[in-house]
Every structure is written in C-alpha cells, then in structure tokens.
Design a binder for these strands. Structure first.
Length: 232
DNA sequence: GCGACAG
DNA sequence: ATCTTGTCGC
C-alpha cells in the first residue's frame, strides 16, 4: 500500500493519491468522548533548512474561560525535504507532524491542525490527511483561504459565513469563514476527518481564548516557531 | 495568456 | 513559513 505521506512522489502522483485518499475521509461525526484536544503546527528554522513540528495536548474541558491546562507537548525537528507547493502542503508537513505525535504519551481524541481540512482543491488538506493517517477526528484551522468563495461573516465572535466551491455534483460547502474575535480578520475552519462542518465550528468556538486563533493551534504555533522562548 | 495560491 | 521595531489600541 502506498504510504499516505510518501515524499518521493511526483506532483502528478501526489495529486492522484490525494484524490484517492479524499474518498476515505469521513464527513460525519464519529468521535469518542473528548478529554484531550491536540493542537498541531509546523515551523521552520535556519532559513527553512529544518522543519520543526509541534503538538500541544490540552485537557478538556478547560478550567475556566478559555483557560486550558497543557497536559503534554512534543517537538520533532528534521531536515526539510519538500518545498512548499500550494495544494500539496501535507507532503511537506505531515511526516514531521507524525513523528511529533509518536513522541506523545497521551492520545488525544481530537486535533486542531493549522491549515485546511476539506477546504482544498481535492478535498484533502493537511488536516484531513493527518486525521486519516492518525485515524483521529481532526479540524482544519487556517489563517488564509486556499480555495472557494464566501461572503463577509458577521462582526460578533462565533459569526460565520459558508465557504463554498464547485465540485463534481455542483456547488458544495467546504468550510466556514469564522469570526473568532471581534474586529479581526476571520479564520477558515473546515472538517478534517470524522466530523461535519457544524461540529467543527462548534469545537473551534469552544476552544477560543482571547485571541484570534483557538488555544490548541495558538499554543502549537508558538512552540513550532519557538515564540515561547524567543522572547527576550 | 492572466491571476490565485494553506504554510 | 521566515526576515524584523516600534507603535496604535483595548
């Protein structure tokens, strides 16, 4: 069987693989009771030479208003071997993310990933790809749009506008443009694996703290970019 | 041919 | 993604 993250694939083969894998992604809710939520993100060091994957595991539910307890953290660094190509991001980031996950002692029931879920040209963004490989429910939380069209979401936290794109059978909703914080540019939420859009949006909103990004992704972002110690 | 383009 | 200081605003 072809590995889900074979980085020795040509762009054409990678695209064909994504089309096949997209058929395995589950778009309906199927998640175990949540007690641990993971945040995943990838950063780079030394001008991109080194890929740095970070996973942060938070306890659910939070102790207070957006006050999550960090249960565990894991970082994995390795030489970067793939360039960034729009639409093929998972081949560049998933291998390192998997290595970071292997370092965890706790197994989360849900993971929020920095990037798109099914809001992808072939409906297999990095969040979906990772969820499929880890056999875990995942949600994609991106800061920018990759594909699809949308209107402007309302001004209040939690307001969202559907992200739609044309598919084989016509127009389909692939994600939500969510206002995670008043007066701030919205984030792009899309199901990764094993949950529907409404459930994905609900979890992201439930994980919001005071900032634009939900806590799992925000903390993983800081760890991946070593912003947690880079302060001086 | 001309844009658009997750991280 | 990353390179980077101060600055405006709640």
């Amino acid at each position: 069987m072809t590995p889900l993250h074979d980085w020795n694939l040509s762009p054409t083969e990678a695209i064909a693989l994504q089309r096949r894998l997209a058929g395995r992604v589950e778009h309906t809710d199927r998640l175990a009771p949540v007690r641990r939520i993971a945040g995943v993100d990838i950063g780079f060091e030394q001008g991109g030479e080194i890929t740095r994957a970070a996973v942060v595991v938070l306890a659910w539910p939070p102790a207070g208003e957006g006050r999550f307890e960090v249960v565990e953290q894991a970082v994995h660094r390795e030489p970067t071997r793939m360039p960034y190509v729009p639409g093929l991001l998972s081949f560049r980031e998933v291998p390192a993310a998997l290595a970071a996950f292997e370092r965890l002692e706790t197994r989360p029931q849900l993971a929020l990933v920095d990037g798109q879920g099914i809001a992808h040209p072939r409906r297999l963004g990095v969040a979906s790809h990772l969820g499929l490989w880890l056999d875990l429910p995942t949600i994609g939380v991106a800061k920018k749009r990759l594909c699809g069209r949308h209107g402007e979401p309302g001004p209040a936290r939690g307001d969202w506008a559907p992200l739609v794109d044309d598919g084989p059978g016509g127009e389909e909703t692939i994600g939500a443009v969510l206002r995670s914080r008043r007066g701030v540019k919205p984030v792009f939420v899309s199901p990764g694996h094993r949950l529907c859009l409404e459930t994905a949006v609900a979890w992201v909103v439930a994980c919001l703290g005071r900032t634009k990004l939900p806590e799992p992704t925000r903390l993983a972002d800081r760890l991946a970019s070593r912003r947690d110690q880079k302060r001086r």
